[in-house]
């Protein structure tokens, strides 16, 4: 992040009206005291060679707008592709064969309840790994280590359940029935266990209802705030720059004016991440069209509230990328699609 010396802002502040930017920059730079004269003349001739005449202010131009791409990042991990989960399971099973044997007595002291529990479990699954099913890498039938088609072990939910089951600790252990070989005993045992808290479902209520205004929907995806403007078009929150306002200042103002103050947001950087250019069908007085520069922002907490917003917005939605494509019009989508995250 070498934002030190030559940011566009500083360069722009240095530019005068009489000479071009690159010449200005080259000339105004102080050479070190050593061989100062030589370098200055050298730079100057070079600058003359690279001279770009300064732009005169045009009679017609584009109006400038700022837009805010307000997003909620993914909250949970994504669902694995079937190939990924199959590959990971294969590698985990292979690891059971290749890894050094489990150092049992380092983890379970002899004749403790934990040791008895361990014995019972290892008898069932034959391997220290908890979530790969029965696996035996040694012995006469070691060759039979592939999962068959449709085996429950390849289902991710099954693996999660096995992990949860393993995490359950016995509430009180009966000394006389260490193995728990009999089915009935195992069942009775399960009732007595302190159950571990189950993880929250990955699909939320908002997903089931199809509530696009909720921030609790599509937890695996990035959600973007789209608003319906005066013309009835779905866009990101946008507004014209007021006077000499900077883009990031405008972005913060737009967030307050559109979604209200009930949003805890973070504006990422001061550089726009994309732009959209719209030409007017008939040129207005000295304005060809409108250019919108999009600033990136994240929502940390809160929710959008369009009640008495100052931009005349009618409605809002929190949408993932492919839903954004269906909602906005084609040209707009073409300009914004590359700045939206795939996930």
């Amino acid at each position: 992040m070498n934002a030190g010396q030559n940011t566009a802002r500083r360069i722009a502040s240095k530019t005068g009206s009489s000479i071009c930017r690159s010449c200005r920059e080259t000339i105004s730079r102080n050479a070190y005291s050593t061989a100062a004269a030589a370098t200055v003349t050298d730079n100057h001739t070079e600058a003359l060679l690279n001279h770009i005449p300064p732009a005169t202010s045009p009679s017609t131009s584009y109006g400038v707008q700022a837009g805010v791409v307000l997003s909620r990042p993914p909250v949970i991990t994504r669902d694995l592709h079937p190939f990924e989960s199959a590959f990971f399971l294969y590698q985990r099973r292979l690891n059971e064969r290749l890894a050094l044997p489990f150092t049992r007595y380092f983890y379970f002291k002899k004749k403790t309840p934990a040791d008895l529990e361990w014995k019972r479990k290892i008898k069932q699954r034959l391997t220290p790994a908890r979530d790969i099913g029965r696996y035996k890498g040694y012995g006469d039938e070691a060759w039979n280590d592939e999962l068959l088609v449709g085996a429950p072990e390849s289902d991710v939910n099954w693996q999660v359940e096995r992990l949860l089951e393993d995490a359950d600790k016995p509430a009180a252990k009966d000394e006389h029935n260490p193995g728990g070989e009999v089915e009935g005993l195992v069942q009775k045992d399960k009732v007595e266990r302190d159950m571990v808290e189950k993880p929250m479902p990955r699909v939320t209520e908002a997903d089931l209802k199809g509530d696009v205004k909720s921030l609790n929907r599509m937890l695996q995806r990035t959600l973007y705030l789209l608003v319906k403007n005066k013309e009835g078009k779905w866009t990101f929150p946008e507004d014209r720059l007021a006077g000499k306002e900077a883009l990031h200042d405008a972005a913060e103002r737009i967030l307050v004016h559109s979604g209200g103050i009930n949003m805890n947001t973070w504006l990422i950087g001061r550089v726009p991440i994309g732009h959209h250019e719209a030409k007017y069908p008939t040129a207005k007085s000295n304005e060809l069209g409108l250019k919108t520069f999009f600033m990136k922002a994240r929502i940390m907490a809160g929710q959008a509230n369009l009640k008495d917003n100052k931009l005349g917005l009618a409605d809002f939605k929190w949408l993932a990328k492919e839903e954004v494509q269906k909602t906005v019009d084609g040209k707009y989508w073409h300009s914004i699609k590359n700045m939206l995250a795939e996930r």
Binding site: A3, T7, T26, R78, I268, G269
Partner: peptide, 27 residues
């Protein structure tokens, strides 16, 4: 996953330095 989906794009937006087209560093 968080790095790929959230952190890396944010770092890029935070640390990007825009130079105007045609700019050549005097250094």
């Amino acid at each position: 996953q968080t790095y790929q989906s959230t952190i890396a794009p944010d770092l890029l937006a935070l640390t990007y330095v825009h130079l105007p087209p045609g700019f050549r560093s005097p250094v």
